[in-house]
């Protein structure tokens, strides 16, 4: 009996790892295929019968792709939008979370539930009017068109309010006795105490900004204003069948976020998990 059980256990363990490794390969496959394809020669990429690996890795494809379209400009635009959007999102979230967690004002509960209610609205429904608004403001082809409409994120406000509420009231009262102003208290006590939650929000927002696609596409016509995701799609239609270059360009777009993810995955995974467990 115990011998049979032992064998069963070994089989179960082997099966377990086999499924996990298969799953991991399935997950990694597009990334691996992207990098492998980006290193092939034009002849190799359309070889029949297909060749799995390049005989000599063509690193020059990256330089060629980088120069084939204004990618430096796309990168610059994306970085500008990401930085200012993240600063804006953090500022509105910190200020609102402080108001909701520490200050007492008429209609607080109502405003808070109205804020939360906006989470139900699909953003896709808002783009029609927002596009008209941006057109009327004459903001087409400007950075603010890509930054301002997304400067307030209710989900982050909600998350940060939860964290701010956990800071004991006694600290706030002590600060009041010391004649510390609310603003100073917020900046000197609340923000440093919740550094890791704020970092998580910043990272999630940076990833969201970097990958955003539809809205920047709508509000930019000028190629000099394109962000990287829009530029990449345009490059695909221009590059035609030069798939090794398209794959190199995709790798260039994906790499910065993968690097951020590998270094800061603790914050990202924590933030996303919290979003799931809290709501």
């Amino acid at each position: 009996m115990s011998k049979k059980r032992k064998i069963m256990n070994i089989i179960a363990t082997v099966l377990k790892y086999a499924i996990l490794i298969l799953g991991a390969l399935f997950t990694l496959m597009p990334f691996l295929w992207m990098i492998i394809s980006s290193l092939k020669t034009p002849a190799e990429i359309t070889a029949i019968p297909p060749k799995l690996l390049p005989s000599v890795p063509q690193w020059s494809n990256y330089a060629e792709a980088w120069k084939a379209a204004p990618f430096p400009r796309y990168f610059l635009n994306t970085i500008i939008v990401t930085i200012f959007s993240t600063i804006g999102v953090l500022a509105t979230a910190i200020l609102s979370a402080f108001a909701f967690s520490r200050l007492n004002f008429p209609g607080k509960k109502l405003v808070f539930s109205l804020f939360l209610a906006t989470l139900m609205i699909p953003g896709e429904m808002l783009i029609i009017t927002n596009f008209i608004t941006i057109t009327k403001l004459k903001w087409i082809d400007t950075y603010q068109a890509m930054i301002v409409p997304y400067m307030s994120n209710v989900f982050y406000i909600y998350l940060l309010t939860q964290f701010f509420s956990q800071v004991p009231d006694s600290l706030y009262l002590a600060a009041k006795v010391d004649k510390c102003s609310d603003f100073k208290f917020m900046m000197k006590i609340m923000v440093p105490m919740n550094k890791s939650a704020i970092t998580t929000i910043a990272i999630l927002n940076i990833i969201g900004c970097w990958n955003s696609f539809l809205w920047p596409l709508l509000v930019t016509n000028d190629r000099n204003m394109r962000v990287i995701s829009n530029g990449l799609v345009r490059f695909q239609t221009e590059a035609g069948s030069d798939y090794q270059l398209i794959m190199a360009a995709s790798t260039i777009m994906v790499m910065p976020i993968i690097i951020v993810y590998l270094f800061l995955r603790k914050y990202i995974i924590e933030g996303v998990t919290q979003s799931g467990l809290k709501s």
Partner: peptide, 30 residues
């Protein structure tokens, strides 16, 4: 394993979608 499995969540749908369109390519796709 956890790091690998979460990777698709952080990567751009657009960039990785281009890769998938190449994977699905009927003549040369993986």
């Amino acid at each position: 394993f956890q790091t690998i499995f979460f990777l698709p969540y952080v990567t751009s749908v657009i960039a990785i979608g281009l890769v998938w369109s190449w994977i699905f390519n009927s003549n040369y796709g993986l």
